[in-house]
């Protein structure tokens, strides 16, 4: 580097065209039918994407755009003409000639039963999405009676940032995926045991501080039922002060390192009560680290603080 170098003074010319990723072969279009209507969609699409592109609202619980579909909740199943069983819309790719029914009697029954199974075994009180599906599919979890096995268990509070209430866990695997290969690659939690006893667990159920957890909170970010929650949210809910109608969400950029993660600040009464990140931002894909997700306190209690960073 030297200041006498000519390019130091003159920006280089622009390339003849903007740089772009290597070209991918264009996806072939396939003809399918959805609920009797013909549709032409790219062959790389899943049934769910095809349905959504046609404005058909397909319920999902274990699916999230930023995670690999695990197709375990089965609430998104659809009927394919000629198939013995129903197919999960979230992971199944469309194929030419597919004849998809999203609202047949079999589909409605399967969705209703899945929701009844969950509703009769899991506390869905902080899962508004699941509750709305229960209404939509007229599921009646109460018809199994009160003497049924559930996943009811004590709340786990073993650190200052997270609360884990597995009475609310529908075992959607999202937290495991976010902690694992889909984002954080820390693998502090996994599914342990099997059958109805299957559960999300650290090794030997040790408390989080004794596990590999690095408190990125990405498990909380993807949890669809409130089983995993910011401790601050949990405490506000316990105190009856959590009020989403009085909250606003503002997108900004994390104040820490130079990666530039978008933070969605959820504020109530001029205080940050929760931090998330949008799924459709290429920088984060919805995932954050401990500082971005939890490191906002310094702006809240400024009178008590002093000193700054260089």
């Amino acid at each position: 580097m030297s200041t006498s170098d000519p390019i130091w003074f003159t920006p280089p010319p622009r390339p003849s065209r903007p740089p772009a990723p290597p070209e991918q072969p264009e996806a072939t279009q396939v003809d399918i039918r959805i609920d009797g209507q013909p549709a032409r969609v790219p062959g790389t699409m899943t049934i769910l994407e095809a349905c959504r592109s046609r404005g058909i609202d397909t319920p999902t619980l274990c699916y999230l755009e930023n995670l690999t579909p695990v197709n375990v909740c089965r609430v998104c199943v659809v009927e394919l003409a000629g198939a013995r069983t129903l197919a999960p819309a979230c992971s199944r790719k469309v194929e030419a000639g597919m004849d998809i029914q999203t609202n047949s009697d079999r589909v409605k029954l399967a969705r209703k039963m899945v929701l009844e199974f969950l509703g009769s075994s899991v506390d869905l009180s902080t899962a508004p999405q699941a509750q709305s599906y229960i209404k939509r599919y007229e599921a009646r979890p109460e018809r199994y009676g009160s003497d049924v096995e559930t996943v009811d268990q004590p709340v786990k509070i073993d650190n200052d940032l997270y609360v884990r209430d597995y009475s609310k866990c529908i075992l959607c695997y999202k937290c495991v995926e976010a902690c694992g290969t889909d984002a954080q690659n820390t693998f502090a939690i996994a599914v342990a045991a099997r059958g109805f006893d299957a559960r999300i667990s650290t090794e030997n159920d040790v408390p989080l501080p004794e596990s590999a957890c690095v408190y990125c909170g990405n498990c909380i970010g993807v949890c669809p039922t409130g089983a995993l929650m910011f401790k601050s949210e949990y405490e506000m809910r316990q105190a009856g002060t959590w009020d989403e109608t009085r909250q606003t969400k503002t997108d900004t950029i994390c104040p820490y390192c130079g990666v530039g993660c978008t933070l969605t600040l959820h504020t109530q009464d001029n205080r940050i009560v929760k931090v998330t990140s949008p799924l459709d931002v290429d920088v984060t894909h919805g995932h954050l680290c401990i500082k971005g997700r939890f490191g906002f306190e310094f702006v809240q209690n400024r009178e008590e603080n002093s000193g700054s960073d260089g």
Binding site: N71, V72, C73, R74, V75, A110, M113, V114, F117, L118, S120, S121, I170, L171, V191, A193, R194, G195, F196, D197, A198
Partner: peptide, 8 residues
């Protein structure tokens, strides 16, 4: 225990 229909 993976999918809901069978697990429950």
């Amino acid at each position: 225990g993976q999918c809901v229909p069978c697990r429950v």
